[in-house]
Design a protein around this nucleic acid. Structure first.
Length: 343
DNA sequence: TAGGCCATCTGGTCCT
DNA sequence: AGGACCAGATGGCCTA
């Protein structure tokens, strides 16, 4: 199954001398005899009968005559062409999926809680990204600094419990404080003052994690997660994690490209957003956009793309234009840029 | 060992 | 005809 394309191409010649194997090259042992007529497995049977494109009329009286359109005879040349075409299609499909995975990896670096050691799954990455976009959009729309609880609630909406724990760990929060539906006996919004009391560690709630996968799910340092905006001691938004906002942590991947859509369709979350109470605790959500963007003070909130060259393709100007925005929106965008544009 | 996640192969469909 | 995209199938790997 894991044979490289080159290996396959090298071996195809020898295989052509022999009979074709099952279409499920790396898997499928049970596909064999019950394969449909147009499967490659069937092709091999016809291949040996003749090399010319003749009608298969001499089946004899044993086999019942086939109905429907007659299939073209599979000559050796046709079989070879089929195999080459199939190999090329497989290679393209692999490349396509690799490109998809590269894009997903870029997305992992953009959403909160990026960790090289504990990667979010594909589906969880997409869910978290969707929530993240929505949460940021809400910030732009409302024009208010988000309170930490509603922000994290929005982030964790629909995520699995392990991923929720991961987000909580990255944000230094107890998931019990923002998952009321899972802990109905607890207050919905607890003061998160204790959130900053475990710098450098994931939160590990003995009660919560009982029966759940145990942290660590990642290696995010608080210094990676909450870092100051240069020249703004507490950032444009009020600091929530006083004492945690340090910027001397080890370098991590440069910022990438968060497209801050403010026009997305998030109707399913409207009621939840409305339900979120207004808390004056603000939340600096400059989660992990460190590094590379800021050499010249240019508001390039997206950096060089890290180790993956494909991550640097997106351009800020193409993603988030300022035309047509109100002054307030421009101010919010500037604030967000400043947040994302760490040091 | 079961379940989750993933990579890969494969055939079908649509489009150029 | 060939490429892109998609979904189903399959087996490998990892973890609880």
């Amino acid at each position: 199954m894991t044979r490289s394309v080159q290996e396959e191409q090298e071996s195809v010649e020898s295989e052509q001398q022999e009979e074709l194997h099952s279409p499920m090259e790396g898997g499928g042992e049970e596909g064999g005899e019950e394969e449909q007529e147009d499967s490659p497995h069937h092709l091999e049977e016809e291949e040996e009968e003749d090399d010319e494109e003749e009608e298969e009329d001499d089946d004899g009286e044993n086999k019942p005559k086939r109905r429907g359109p007659k299939k073209k005879k599979m000559t050796k040349a046709r079989v070879q062409r089929f195999k080459v075409r199939r190999m090329k299609a497989n290679a393209r499909e692999r490349n396509r999926m690799h490109g998809l995975n590269d894009a997903l990896e870029c997305l992992r670096k953009i959403v909160p809680c990026y960790s090289k050691t504990q990667k979010l799954s594909k589906i969880e990455t997409l869910r978290l990204a969707k929530n993240y976009i929505w949460a940021l959009s809400e910030v732009l729309r409302s024009g208010k600094a988000p309170d930490v609880m509603s922000f994290v609630q929005a982030l964790c909406k629909g995520l699995s419990q392990p991923t929720t724990n991961l987000v909580a760990g990255c944000l230094q929060l107890n998931p019990r404080t923002f998952l009321p539906e899972q802990m109905p006996d607890l207050p919905v919004h607890l003061p998160a003052a204790g959130a900053a009391t475990y710098p450098g560690h994931y939160y590990q709630s003995p009660g919560l994690t009982a029966g759940l996968p145990s942290p660590p799910y990642g290696t995010m340092e608080p210094s990676h997660i909450f870092h100051q905006v240069k020249g703004q001691p507490y950032g444009p938004l009020e600091p929530f994690f006083d004492g945690v906002l340090v910027s001397d942590g080890p370098a991590f991947d440069p910022p990438l490209s968060p497209p801050l859509s403010i026009n997305g369709n998030f109707s399913s979350y409207k009621h939840e957003a409305a339900a979120a109470a207004d808390y004056d605790k603000s939340f600096s959500f400059s989660v992990h956009y460190g590094g590379a963007g800021g050499a010249g003070g240019h508001p390039a909130i997206y950096g060089g793309g890290g180790s993956n060259p494909r991550c640097s393709e997106l351009q800020v100007d193409g993603l988030m234009g300022f035309d047509g925005q109100t002054h307030h929106e421009r101010m919010m965008n500037a604030q967000l840029n400043a947040i994302f544009h760490d040091s």
